[in-house]
Amino acid sequence: MQRTYQDIFPNQDFSHLSKTVEQYLSSETPLWWVNFTDTETVTQETSPVACLWMGNAIDQITGQRHAHLFLLYVVPEHRRRGVGRALMEYAQTWARARGDKQIGLQVFSSNTPALNLYNQLGFQTQSLWMIKPLENGE
């Protein structure tokens, strides 16, 4: 999770994200890893190159439970190879099997590659999360 945020905001400290994981990771919020096997080495060591973390949310309009994408991450050297798309297809299969009618997610507006992927997969903007930094005394 920290690598995801550091890719977009490289000068920030994201050590606080471990609290998010502790709070939300459970048997009902599965986390899947994609490992890369180096076939060039004798040991054939594997290393994670991507992950998908799904969970639950409640639709603010209908009140229905639906699948929510907490995290989709692909390490930079494995991007643009279809890994993210394959994980999103897996997420949709998982959600349909649970009986979910939709998948929700939050994406940074500056994350153009992710926005492009989600738009290509048919995701639509339902709401905007807006913030205003407050100065002392404002």
Rank of each mutant, 00 (worst) to 15 (best):
L31I: 05
Q106V: 13
V75L: 15
E28F: 07
F36T: 04
R80L: 12
M88L: 06
G99H: 06
A86E: 04
G63R: 08
Y90L: 08
D59R: 14
A57D: 12
W53K: 05
W33N: 01
W32E: 05
G82C: 08
I103A: 11
T46G: 11
Y24H: 10
V74N: 00
D59V: 14
M54T: 11
G84A: 00
Q23F: 02
S109G: 10
D59I: 14
V49A: 03
S26Y: 03
S110K: 09
A50D: 05
C51G: 02
E40N: 03
G104P: 04
P76D: 03
I103E: 05
A97L: 12
R96L: 09
M54K: 07
V83R: 02
W32S: 03
W32H: 03
A95C: 13
Q64E: 15
V83G: 00
H78R: 10
W53F: 10
M88I: 01
R85V: 03
V34Q: 04
A67N: 13
W94Q: 01
A57N: 11
E40G: 00
Q23N: 07
A91W: 04
L72C: 15
L71M: 15
M54A: 12
T41G: 09
S47R: 12
G55Y: 06
P30T: 08
Q60W: 15
G82R: 05
Q92C: 05
A67P: 04
T93S: 08
A57F: 06
T37L: 03
R80Q: 13
V75E: 15
L69Y: 15
G82W: 02
G63S: 06
L87T: 04
N56W: 09
R85S: 00
